[in-house]
Amino acid sequence: MTLELVDFQILAAALFCLGLYGVLARKSAVMVLMAVELMLNAVNINLVAFAAFRDVSSIVTGQVIVIFVITVAAAEVGLALAVIMRLFRRRGTVNVDEIDLMKG
């Protein structure tokens, strides 16, 4: 029995769904951000796995896209944490349920 693509796909699906649960169920904005990181990592696993299981020419494409995803994730974390800290200074909370300023 050897390692197959479907193993990586199911692992990535599990990681993505755990991240989705975290985004939906957690109250702290920082925990929501950490769950988003889990989802991004699940996508990265899928990209690298699909690239590695095809021919050699697609490996570069898959891995370069992963590098871009990591870059955007770094930018996202920096910006989101700045927003969260600003929010904490103004409102005194990072609970996403209490931040309903734009509620109609």
């Binding site: 199911i10 699906a13 993505f16 989705l20 649960y21 939906l24 169920a25 957690r26 109250k27 925990m31």
Partner: peptide
Amino acid sequence: TEHRRWPAAAIVSLALFGLL
């Protein structure tokens, strides 16, 4: 730290996992 509707989130996540 959990939202009070966390069972709904768990159901949605499990359903998506089953689909994927």
